[in-house]
């Protein structure tokens, strides 16, 4: 990969992500005013350039925690700090700029169905205002990196699950995110494709991104040992 150089990595000192006493409550389904507590008292720090697994059973709160990390939700209590900035103190208009530094990969890919693989990958650059002539080479290279150079014009419906997930990863990393979060990225893939996706995420980590991957595929986690955050019933039960 030539469009990126590895980020300079020193000892893990600067905090990329910091959660302090974070809680998250949703209105419970039914609309009777009841609330469901998805997260409670979460506190941890992820150093810049680290790789973490986010583990826990279904319903433990992994997705909620990742959504807080990617600024798709705001906590109902406590404080989230990203890139050294307290998110709760930022104006809403300041958040898009932060989101452009975060790459997100979902289990269900979330590609735009009417756009080709190339245009899906180019989307973050276009949103960031990159000139059309300047983005073509970068998109072509990132598609080569994920092994899809020859599928650039294919629509998502014409791609396999593994190929769609690689397009999603390409879209997430095209802006070289400082923070990359992946929510069960291998959930819909076979073992071979899953290993390939995890290898790409590890490569991003090697290039300097801070990476958090939620998974309950323990075989995969054991194959790629790394520190882990472990959630259970909305509480952080282990970190390290």
């Amino acid at each position: 990969m030539t469009i990126w150089r590895p980020r300079r990595q020193g000892p893990f000192s600067a905090a990329m992500v910091r959660f302090s006493g974070v809680g998250l409550r949703y209105p419970a389904p039914g609309g009777d005013g009841a609330v469901r507590e998805a997260l409670r008292g979460i506190g941890f720090t992820l150093p810049e350039g680290s790789f973490h697994w986010l583990l826990g059973p279904s319903g433990a709160g992994k997705t909620s925690l990742l959504r807080l990390m990617q600024l798709a939700l705001r906590p109902t209590e406590g404080e989230v700090e990203l890139f050294g900035q307290r998110v709760g103190r930022l104006r809403r208009a300041a958040l898009p700029r932060l989101r452009r530094r975060i790459g997100v990969v979902h289990q269900d890919f979330r590609l735009l169905a009417h756009l080709s693989a190339f245009d899906n990958v180019a989307l973050p650059l276009r949103i960031a205002g990159r000139a059309e002539a300047a983005l073509r080479a970068d998109v072509a290279e990132i598609l080569r990196w994920v092994g899809l150079a020859d599928r650039a014009e294919a629509l998502p419906a014409g791609l396999s699950g593994g190929e769609q997930q690689r397009v999603a990863i390409a879209r997430a990393v095209i802006v070289r995110p400082a923070l990359l979060v992946a929510d069960e990225p291998t959930g819909n893939l076979d073992a071979e494709q899953a290993a390939r996706v995890i290898a790409l995420l590890r490569e991003m980590h090697r290039l300097g991104s801070t990476v958090v991957v939620a998974s309950h595929a323990m075989k995969l986690v054991e194959a790629y040992p790394a520190p882990a955050l472990r959630l259970d019933a909305g509480r952080l039960v282990a970190h390290g």
Partner: peptide, 11 residues
């Protein structure tokens, strides 16, 4: 699609 654009940092 709007959620995706929002997530990617569209204002």
């Amino acid at each position: 699609a709007i959620a995706v654009l929002h997530e990617l940092g569209a204002t």
